[in-house]
Amino acid sequence: MKDWICFFISAFFAVIGMTAFLFAAVGVFRFDHVLYRMHASALADTVGVACLTLAAVVYIGANFVSLKELAVLLLMTLSSPVSTHLLAEIEYTMGNCKKESRRIDGLGGDEK
């Protein structure tokens, strides 16, 4: 019975993770502005990686390997949003952002 519970939990997480990756891929293809694409890829990719590694951890069980998987999860959650943040900051500062594409402008700044 416990095997079935583990299997269903990991299957649930795996399906959520793959759906998130699907959304990320569709978003990267369909948006036309760079910042929109970055937003889609960062958020959905991080959620997808987290859910998939959780599915793998639950499926394998309490093992040394699953501890390494948790380390992978920690690394991806730390590094992927930070790198996307840096790219977005550079793009905002250096690129020619159109006025219409900045509806919510948290950083403020002059109109370009």
Binding site: S79, V82, L86, T93, M94
Partner: peptide, 19 residues
């Protein structure tokens, strides 16, 4: 080249301190 200096960025330095 005009470039945005990322050296003192808060998010980067605080996160990399852990990594």
């Amino acid at each position: 080249l005009p470039c945005h200096d990322l050296t003192g960025d808060v998010i980067l330095s605080r996160t990399m301190r852990a990594l």
